[in-house]
Write a protein that binds this DNA or RNA. Structure first.
Lengths: 195, 195, 195, 195
DNA sequence: AATGAATGAGGGTTCATTCAT
DNA sequence: GATGAATGAACCCTCATTCAT
């Protein structure tokens, strides 16, 4: 159990993470200075250095925090009772509520981290997201929505890519009217279903 | 016609653009200093300021240069005689030789510019790329490769997205073995072809 | 009360102001770089930026500092017991000890600030200097040294002008031998006293 | 006599001087770059360096040009037939037509040059202005306007100072309503005339 | 003689990070 | 443990001046 000290410590750490996350998402990682984060979190710059060792490590921390926060939502969705195609739609088109307008750079900074081996984010991803995806596509295959000859990696890549893309504000706005078509292509390809 | 002066001027300008492009693509726009570009282009910093007025304008210039350079390749491909599916594959999977390893930030900086109205890049894109795409997909529809009910925008979005994604080194490496599956999904969707 | 922190802070701030003042007075504002000020004040450039936000604001600060420093001397003189003509002479001819060699540009930069409405310097001037001058010339009129028909503004203008002029090193040197005549002109005009 | 070459050369030199003078007077010496002068004079930067060796020397040249231009006006005034007090008034209060709004810094840069021994300006001043002033004050003494006990230097200094001061735009505006009083003090001092 | 091109040196400013209390 | 103070390094940009044609 945590005592009062540790609890307060944890709280302060989270304040910093929240402040940094908000700023990163709005302005991008490089444009946000430690000083600004400190100000927004109501701590001194040095306190940030006490909790995280460098901006680099803080940034990693923020990524982890963000992933953990969102992967919970993801888990819920997967386990819910709505039909398979609806799940897919939501994965692709639902922007996370916390990131109404996520900053490009932050997102891709994250994606890069995400690709690097051996970091927290990768770990969380592999431990949590992957199994859920596997489960989801098993479900899809059983219900005839997914071609069983396709490798799971390929499908996963495709979903990730779409999801990613939808995170971008300018894309999201442009593509919203095309939702039906986009979904159709995802399920039936550009050749379309034979009916 | 250009005299010796102008020719040399044009050459130097291109040297700078090339140097900047290479560095931007490798490290991103913000991480590359004018001084580094100058060094790589074998000119002094000030020379850069003589040709381009600021880093902002240089960056714009680099974007334009890049787009022009690549749109030529694109044009050639569209007009070539290879079969439709092969063209699509090449558009999606062939990384431009000049961008062996395109840097995220540069690419999205570019895409942002790209979205802004009234700039050179937008102009080139609308004037050159769009009509070619239209032509390409007409060809596809005629040959039965493309569902005629799908809006051109939706298809375009998919191609762009895939193309974009393949520009990323880390993605490229991972996805290469999945090329067949990805292409299949693009053409036939995750449900797969009915045969 | 100030604690040790604040006291040291105040001290350092004053060090910077002193260094800047000295350099501004010798070489003018534009010719003096932040780096030189930092060196003279034995701090790093950035420390200056921590105390004052920009060169512009530092310069303003230096003006305020200078004005405050000199207005105290002025107050003392006005309240002292020496005869009226002697006070006038001292106001005009006594160079402030801190400005052995005041640089033109600094001085006129200051005078410009001085003219701008709503700044500290104007405020100090209006609140402190003007009333004292008024009092001084009342005294002068009572003692028959000042023509009661003259507007206070006109007299003030003359004193200011003479005072200003004497601040210039090259003028000061040339005019010193003429002190008596200058004073005479001030009191009796170029027509001279009727005796 | 000048041939065509030399005439054109002279013309170009004057173009440069005029351009520089105008810019110096509006923005001050330090804020105006050689490049700006070149642009305004429609020549290349290097041409300026061909005529004048450095910015320093150009500046000197501009001062000389300015002085010569204005000293002619002065000469005319001294020799005109208007009464003595009116001449004084004009000297003090008439701003030179060419400098409706002379920039502080340029003016004082000039005054500093002016004070330095052995330069063109000093030379022109000593050769032309001084004798005229002497003549003027002889006239004043003869007509009873000037106290014969006052040294010429002192009077000269006083006039110069007033003239100088009036050149400043912000002073000029403020003091204009006080013209009568200022003139009175100049002639009769702050004690005023005995009537 | 005149110019377009090029540059070294320096200026103000910002930032991640460390020091000292 | 937390903070205010301090800093070295770097960045973008400007300018007087020189080079090469």
């Amino acid at each position: 159990m945590m005592d009062g000290f540790q609890r307060r410590r944890e709280q302060k750490k989270q304040d910093i993470l929240e402040a940094a996350l908000a700023l990163f998402m709005e302005y991008g990682v490089q444009k946000v200075s430690i000083s600004e984060i400190a100000q927004k979190a109501n701590v001194s710059q040095v306190t940030i250095y006490n909790y995280f060792e460098s901006k680099q490590k803080l940034t990693s921390g923020v990524f982890g925090y963000y992933i953990k926060k969102t992967s919970d939502d993801f888990e819920k969705l997967i386990h819910s009772n709505i039909p398979f195609p609806e799940k897919i739609k939501q994965i692709i088109f639902n922007k996370k509520e916390i990131s109404k307008q996520i900053h490009e750079e932050f997102y891709h900074f994250m994606m890069k981290e995400y690709a690097t081996e051996g970091n927290i984010i990768e770990k969380i991803y592999v431990e949590k997201a992957l199994p859920y995806f596997a489960k989801l596509f098993e479900e899809g295959k059983e219900q005839g929505y997914v071609n069983p000859n396709l490798s799971q990696e390929a499908i996963l890549f495709y979903v990730q890519m779409l999801k990613d893309y939808m995170q971008r504000e300018e894309v999201y706005q442009k593509v919203l009217p095309l939702t039906e078509d986009i979904t159709n292509i995802f399920f039936y390809g550009i050749i379309g279903k034979k009916e």
